[in-house]
Structures are given as structure tokens and as C-alpha cells.
């Protein structure tokens, strides 16, 4: 019961903040609402018994990504946009048709879809006994070690790419 109330509160807030993100004319405000939304999602992760993911969500998204966004907004000195400009008007009629269709179709699939997958070994009792973060770490560094390495390499490459792209060449 408590869980249901929590889901509806966090879920509703996340939807609300997400809508605010995309309908704010001031990019700084968008970024702030994005933080709010990410925190709601982190709370949902907690509801899903994944405290580690919630922590990562807060660290990476709130601590790194949104900060990066804000940083860029300040560097580029972006101001609040005029009302007539911030929406792409040519896209609007199409989007108004496509978005509800998308929600309808995906929602239909989500509600009507039947999962045929068998339940795995990581039951709630098991996670309480073994510790959910510990179990995640074990799986991550054994079964998924290769994708993990690939992703870490990808992150490294992205870092270098970002640095190289933003370097001012030939100006010194």
C-alpha cells in the first residue's frame, strides 16, 4: 500500500517534471527540472530494490550530466527564449499526431504483452540475504565482464573525443 502510494507520487512527479523540462523556455530551468526528474527516477529505482542504481543515477546524471549541461549553458550564455520561437512550429501538427499514436501503441503492447520468461534466481529473499549491490557486482564482473570492458573503453574514447573536439586549434 505504501509502495503503491510511493510509486504514484514518484511516477507522477517524474512525468510532471519531464513535461516541465520540455516546455520551459529558459534552458537553466529545464536543467533544474531535469535534476528533479532524475531524482524521481532514482526514487523509483529504490522502489525496484536497486539502491545501487539509484546512487549511480544521482551521481552520474545529477552530479555529472546535468552539471555539464549547466556548464555549457553558461559558457554559451544562453538566454530565455521568446515564446514564439522555442517550439518548432512546422513539426507540431505531425508530432501531435505521432506522439499519442506512439503512447497508444507502446502502452497497448506494455499492458497486453505477456511475459513468457521464467523467473530468475534473484528473488527478493535472495537479494536481502546476499545484498543486492553485491549480487549486481558479482554478475557485472563475471558474466558481463566483456561488455563492461567495452563500455569502459567507449567512455574513454568519448572523453578523448570531447576533449579533442572542443580544443581550439591554431589559435595560440
Amino acid at each position: 500500500m505504501v509502495e503503491a502510494i510511493a510509486f504514484y507520487v514518484f511516477g507522477g512527479l517524474s512525468v510532471l517534471t519531464a513535461l516541465l523540462v520540455i516546455f520551459q523556455r529558459d534552458p537553466v530551468r529545464s536543467a533544474i527540472y531535469l535534476v528533479a526528474c532524475f531524482i524521481q527516477v532514482a526514487a523509483l529505482f529504490v522502489l525496484l530494490r536497486s539502491p545501487f542504481l539509484a546512487a549511480v543515477q544521482v551521481f552520474v546524471y545529477v552530479g555529472a550530466v546535468v552539471v555539464l549541461f549547466l556548464f555549457v549553458i553558461m559558457v554559451l550564455e544562453l538566454k530565455k527564449e521568446r515564446f514564439s520561437e522555442y517550439i518548432h512550429r512546422g513539426q507540431r501538427p505531425w508530432a501531435l499526431f505521432i506522439i499519442p499514436a506512439l503512447i497508444g501503441e507502446v502502452g497497448y503492447l506494455a499492458v497486453k504483452g505477456k511475459s513468457k520468461a521464467s523467473l530468475g534466481p534473484y528473488s527478493e529473499e535472495f537479494l536481502v540475504k546476499q545484498g543486492s549491490t553485491e549480487s549486481l557486482g558479482k554478475v557485472l564482473f563475471t558474466k558481463y565482464i566483456f561488455p563492461f570492458e567495452v563500455v569502459s573503453l567507449l567512455l574513454l574514447v568519448a572523453l578523448m573525443g570531447a576533449i579533442i573536439l572542443t580544443m581550439k586549434r591554431g589559435k595560440e
Partner: peptide, 29 residues
């Protein structure tokens, strides 16, 4: 579904998203 794979992939997704934001913002700048 009492599986661990989904959570592992959340970790990966967050990582890739971070990389994407870094490169995307760099290009934007």
C-alpha cells in the same frame, strides 16, 4: 522477473548516456 541482466544493462546505459552527453555537448560547443 527476478533477473540481474536488466540492472546490469541499466549500468551500461547510464555509462553510454554519459559518453553520449560528453560528445554531444562537445559537438554543440
Amino acid at each position: 522477473l527476478q533477473s540481474m541482466a536488466g540492472k546490469v544493462f541499466v549500468v551500461f546505459t547510464i555509462t553510454v548516456a554519459a559518453a553520449e552527453v560528453a560528445v554531444g555537448l562537445a559537438i554543440l560547443v
